[in-house]
Amino acid sequence: MFLERICIATDGSDLAVRAAQMGIELARSGAGRIVAVSVAQPYFSMRDEAAEVPDAQAELIRARKAARAHVDTVARIAQASHVDCEALTPLSSAPGPEIIRVAEEYGCDLIVMGTHGPNDANKLFAGSVAQHVLANSAIPVLLLRDPRDAAPPDFPEAHLA
């Protein structure tokens, strides 16, 4: 499989940056083009006792700034590696489908991303965006997992001798 364009999905986490580095290295061996995508994901919530309505405009600005910072990091890594990078920050409350849409729209041959993001407070749900992309993308997906999350090998005692 020849890789002409790679979609690198990033959420700004350390693991996402490592995945971006891997994706950029793969792009260097192919046509040298990537599409960096970070979904601007606003969070709107109100407590029952909240006295005032949250500032929706401020939250949208925050989400867009965060997403822009994430793709800018990937773009700097790509530039240092002489890889063309198009940076996108679509707005959505559901990043998984948006990542797939971008990868399809830009004709990507591979999606590269980390498995755990900064918003995964519970390990049970960690990686749900990556799981969605993996389960629903017709484009091949390369997931980078944090080695600290890997379970040690389960060898029976008899095989250790």
Results as ranks from 00 to 15, higher is better:
54 P>E: 01
56 A>M: 11
56 A>I: 10
56 A>N: 00
57 Q>E: 14
57 Q>M: 08
57 Q>V: 07
60 L>K: 01
61 I>R: 15
61 I>S: 10
64 R>P: 02
65 K>D: 15
66 A>H: 09
66 A>P: 00
67 A>R: 02
67 A>D: 09
68 R>T: 14
69 A>Y: 05
70 H>Q: 10
70 H>K: 10
71 V>M: 04
71 V>C: 07
72 D>C: 03
72 D>W: 04
72 D>T: 07
73 T>Q: 11
73 T>P: 03
74 V>S: 10
74 V>Q: 12
74 V>C: 12
75 A>Q: 14
76 R>W: 07
76 R>K: 13
77 I>Q: 14
78 A>G: 05
78 A>N: 06
79 Q>W: 11
79 Q>N: 12
80 A>P: 11
80 A>K: 12
81 S>N: 14
81 S>K: 14
82 H>C: 12
83 V>W: 10
83 V>E: 07
84 D>G: 13
84 D>K: 15
84 D>A: 14
85 C>G: 09
87 A>C: 15
87 A>Y: 11
89 T>V: 08
90 P>T: 01
91 L>W: 03
92 S>V: 06
92 S>C: 03
92 S>Q: 01
93 S>H: 13
94 A>P: 00
94 A>M: 11
94 A>Y: 09
94 A>G: 06
95 P>G: 00
95 P>S: 02
95 P>T: 01
97 P>Y: 02
97 P>F: 03
98 E>L: 06
98 E>G: 00
99 I>F: 05
99 I>H: 04
103 A>T: 03
103 A>R: 01
103 A>M: 02
104 E>Q: 15
106 Y>E: 13
107 G>V: 05
107 G>L: 01
108 C>Q: 06
108 C>M: 08
109 D>P: 03
109 D>M: 05
109 D>F: 06
109 D>R: 00
110 L>G: 00
111 I>G: 12
112 V>Y: 04
112 V>N: 03
113 M>V: 05
114 G>V: 02
115 T>R: 07
116 H>L: 07
116 H>V: 11
117 G>N: 03
118 P>Y: 08
119 N>P: 00
120 D>L: 01
121 A>K: 15
121 A>I: 05
121 A>R: 15
121 A>D: 05
121 A>Y: 12
122 N>E: 13
122 N>L: 11
123 K>F: 09
123 K>Y: 08
123 K>Q: 13
125 F>A: 12
126 A>G: 07
127 G>H: 08
128 S>P: 08
128 S>T: 12
129 V>G: 04
130 A>V: 06
131 Q>I: 03
132 H>D: 11
133 V>C: 09
134 L>E: 10
135 A>P: 03
135 A>H: 15
135 A>Y: 12
136 N>A: 10
136 N>L: 10
137 S>R: 00
137 S>Y: 08
137 S>K: 04
138 A>W: 05
138 A>D: 07
139 I>T: 09
139 I>S: 02
140 P>T: 08
140 P>I: 07
141 V>C: 00
142 L>Q: 04
142 L>W: 05
142 L>K: 05
143 L>M: 14
145 R>H: 04
145 R>N: 02
146 D>V: 00
147 P>A: 02
148 R>G: 00
148 R>V: 05
149 D>Y: 08
150 A>W: 10
150 A>E: 15
151 A>Y: 09
151 A>W: 09
152 P>W: 00
152 P>Y: 01
153 P>D: 00
154 D>R: 14
154 D>L: 11
154 D>C: 10
154 D>T: 13
157 E>A: 11
158 A>M: 08
158 A>Y: 08
158 A>V: 13
